[in-house]
Amino acid sequence: MSMSASELQHYLFAPHPEEEEATANASFGFWIYLMSDCILFASLFATFVTLSRSYAGGPTSQEIIHLGHTLEETLVLLCSSVTCGFAMLAMYRRQLRRVLGWLAVTFVLGLTFISLELQEFLSLVAAGHGPTHSGFLSAFFTLVATHGTHVTVGLLWMLVMMAQIAVKGLSEPVQSRLIRFSMFWHFLDIVWVGVFTVVYLNGVL
């Protein structure tokens, strides 16, 4: 080999110290997790579509869906995505108070969404149309509630993040987690678009 000693070093070894890629790797891995969550929801959608006419003598989709209510839920959730976006913009501008503020608004909107959804579920159960009354109802409740459970996890995550920001400020690890949280929150929005299309709009039209 006709290389000088330093050329040889460069040939054989990567430059040191190595670059820190933790945030990028974490985001990448989280994207992949979101893709798996996509498949999770896809299976639930497939289940719902398969069972969407399995009324077993119980109520049909037209009978249990009230589009006005769905519209409320949708507006609330979509708004929360916007406010989450504002929180992220504030994070990039390192405006700690604004981040906390917009996250709080997002939290309230998310909580509103969950309570609206719970309202819908409770009224259906009270009317005797709970998830145990037909295949269609089982699929309806499970698909919508799985999305709701994800949103609830998101709410918990938000609380933890707000606590972390208050205590540690906008450090690199905290920002990395916020980025992943916002990916999660927007993803849930997209899934909701699927839910209200396939379940609610399709069920009524």
């Binding site: 289940t47 399995s54 077993a56 998830p131 145990t132 009354h133 295949g135 089982s138």
Partner: peptide, 23 residues
């Protein structure tokens, strides 16, 4: 979904009440 059938009495895969075995 099978667990929900067993624990809560839903009807994803039961042989009646709108369940679908083939699913």
């Amino acid at each position: 979904l099978l667990a929900l059938d067993r624990y809560l009495g839903t009807h994803f895969f039961t042989a009646g009440m709108g369940g679908n075995l083939m699913l």
